[in-house]
């Protein structure tokens, strides 16, 4: 009984990791860059959600249109910030060694965290409950509420939407081409810069969505909230095979479920240790990840 409840907790928590991990994986696929600022975009999504909701006066039992507008405005805001970060921080370094870009990513991450503390204030804010929590299912001891279900459903929907964009649209085809080779894609007339901007836009949208979904079920937002989930999602992306979208989803779910099981049955003290143990294990024995392709490293 308890196990089933833990499984529900784990799946809903893992969906969040999966959404963030998708952003890591997409950017890596296209640029071969681990965008460490991605976890902070997730924080910005939650922060923007908070400010837009307060500004629009959206509180409990708000109408669907207003809730949706809060979500869309903050996603759009984060998308633009993601594009801006790429334009001004990563693009000038595209021809530089990869380590330089990686360090810049760490720098951007620190900038967002500490700048966030300066601008938003360091104390935690209460995220208004846009959607009232309701039990929708109860069987003996097992409780499933609407927000947990929504997190899972929305994550799944966004993931399939993303899959469709990448696999079926022209832009998606261009993204795959750029991921294959920047130079070759440029030679056949694909606007490489625009495609990369679009990738950052999509990834940041997903991170913002994850930020808002988390805030609905755990309504506390603060400027440092992105650090741990960012790292865990990075582990999830590596676990699933970085660069592989399906892998990121599966990796996220595995991370969420295993974390919940570790803190539920062993001790929460080992939760983070376990996550990074997975990372070390994967890097040692299957560096390409669960679904990743092994191939010659191209530089």
């Amino acid at each position: 009984m308890q196990f089933l409840q833990q499984l529900i907790n784990g799946i809903s928590w893992g969906s969040i990791y999966a959404l963030i991990a998708l952003g890591y994986t997409m950017v890596y696929g296209v640029l071969r860059l681990i965008n460490f600022a991605h976890g902070d975009i997730y924080m910005l999504g939650a922060m923007f959600g908070y400010y837009v909701a307060v500004f629009l006066g959206v509180a409990e039992h708000a109408s669907g249109v207003r809730v949706l507008s809060v979500v869309l405005i903050s996603m759009l805001g984060c998308g633009l910030i993601g594009v801006g970060i790429e334009r001004f921080c990563y693009r000038p370094l595209r021809k530089a060694p990869r380590l330089a870009a990686l360090m810049t990513a760490v720098g951007v991450s620190l900038l967002l965290e500490n700048g966030g503390q300066l601008i938003f204030g360091a104390d935690p804010k209460f995220f208004p409950p846009l959607i009232h929590t309701r039990e929708i299912f109860r069987f003996h001891e097992i409780v499933l509420n609407n927000i947990q279900l929504m997190i899972f459903a929305v994550s799944l929907l966004l993931m399939f939407l993303l899959h469709w964009i990448v696999m079926k649209t022209r832009m998606g085809k261009a993204m795959r081409a750029v991921s294959f080779s920047h130079d070759a894609a440029g030679l056949v007339g694909i606007p490489v810069n625009r495609v990369i901007s679009f990738t950052f836009f999509l990834g940041s949208l997903l991170a913002a969505a994850a930020g808002i979904l988390v805030s609905l079920s755990n309504p506390k937002v603060e400027p440092l909230m992105g650090i741990m989930p960012g790292l865990k999602a990075f582990v999830a992306a590596v676990l699933g095979g970085i660069g592989n979208m399906m892998g990121a989803m599966i990796g996220g779910l595995i991370m969420g479920i295993s974390e919940v099981l570790v803190s539920g049955y062993i001790s929460s003290t080992y939760r983070d240790a376990f996550a990074f143990f997975i990372l070390i294990f994967i890097l040692l024995y299957k560096p390409s990840g669960l679904l990743g392709k092994t191939g010659p490293e191209k530089l």
Binding site: Q2, Q6, E141, K220, S263, S268
Partner: peptide, 20 residues
């Protein structure tokens, strides 16, 4: 007796164990 760490936002796993 369950535990969490400062800064956590997700406590459902431990609370599920406590509740049982």
């Amino acid at each position: 007796e369950e535990s969490y760490s400062e800064g956590d936002i997700e406590f459902r796993a431990q609370l599920t164990t406590i509740k049982s």
